[in-house]
């Protein structure tokens, strides 16, 4: 069998904040086309991993490779240009713009923003704007956001805002998508919608997905492989069923007493 291509590879990454060692020698890799789950109790370092991949908190030690190229210490806006998109745990949409404009910002790396183009809009910018509008509309259709398109972002309900953030990440045509708790605060129906969108996005766009999620039902249903973190340490990994039945995982989530109950 052919060796699967590693899209993202994290090699024994270490990161401390003051005296707190948030990541301890974490190593993992995500193969092309995979949905890779990253789980663990609160404060276990999941978001820190994502932040060191996307350049916000460069690792102290270790290396991060994207498609075979080291991206360690690269500024976030450069990482984005390589083809990594992400969403945030606490929504990070731009107030003061409509839903459509929020998604259009996602096309930034494919456009040529300049002040002169704004001044001579009709000559320089209009065609580009309309061409990218077409592309954005495809994603709006895909994520079923048609009826909120022109709504100011502030008054869109939370569940939809998560979907808009996914849309903004998708329109940048990334090869790797990092989702930081895309289903936090959602009800069952919204969760199911979101799960379907994630699967469809991988199917239709050939994405590789790194998924952080707390809902274990979602993780075990969606992910091909996963890693479980606790206090910055990898305590289990592999297929969801194996990883989640690991005694150390049960201990991390439920304590030693819980482990007895689970057993």
């Amino acid at each position: 069998m052919q060796e699967p291509e590693k899209v993202l590879e994290i090699r024994s990454v270490d990161r401390s904040f003051g005296g707190l060692r948030a990541l301890k020698e974490v190593s993992l890799h995500v193969n092309r086309g995979e949905i890779f789950g990253l789980v663990g109790p609160n404060g276990s370092g999941k978001t820190t991993i994502v932040n060191s991949v996307t350049g916000f908190y460069p690792p102290d030690k270790g290396d991060i490779l994207f498609e075979g190229r080291s991206i360690k210490g690269m500024a976030p806006h450069r990482v984005a240009r390589l083809g990594i998109a992400r969403t945030f745990q606490n929504l990070a949409l731009f107030r003061g713009m409509s839903v459509l404009d929020n998604i259009l910002v996602g096309r930034h790396i494919h456009m040529h923003p300049s002040a002169l183009a704004a001044l001579f809009y009709w000559v320089w910018a209009e065609r580009e704007e309309l061409r990218h509008r077409d592309i954005v509309e495809e994603t709006i259709d895909f994520l079923q956001l048609q009826d909120v398109r022109d709504t100011p972002i502030e008054i869109v309900p939370l569940g939809l805002q998560k979907r808009i953030e996914l849309a903004r990440a998708l329109v940048s045509e990334p090869r790797m998508l990092i989702l930081d708790e895309p289903m936090a605060g959602m009800n069952q129906e919204e969760k199911e919608y979101m799960a379907r969108f994630i699967l469809d996005a991988r199917e239709e766009r050939g994405l590789t997905v790194l998924l952080i999620e707390h809902h274990m039902d979602v993780v075990s249903a969606l992910c091909d492989r996963m890693t479980v973190l606790s206090y910055g340490e990898q305590i289990a990994g592999g297929k969801p069923a194996e990883a989640l039945s690991n005694p150390r995982v049960i201990e991390a989530y439920l304590g030693t007493k819980g482990r007895e109950h689970a057993a």
Binding site: R86, A92, F94, P113, A117, A118
Partner: peptide, 21 residues
Amino acid sequence: TSFGRALVAVREKDFAAAIIG
């Protein structure tokens, strides 16, 4: 235009602006 949207993005949340390039 994309220029103005980028400015607003930076104004609102510069970290989120950075992650989309």
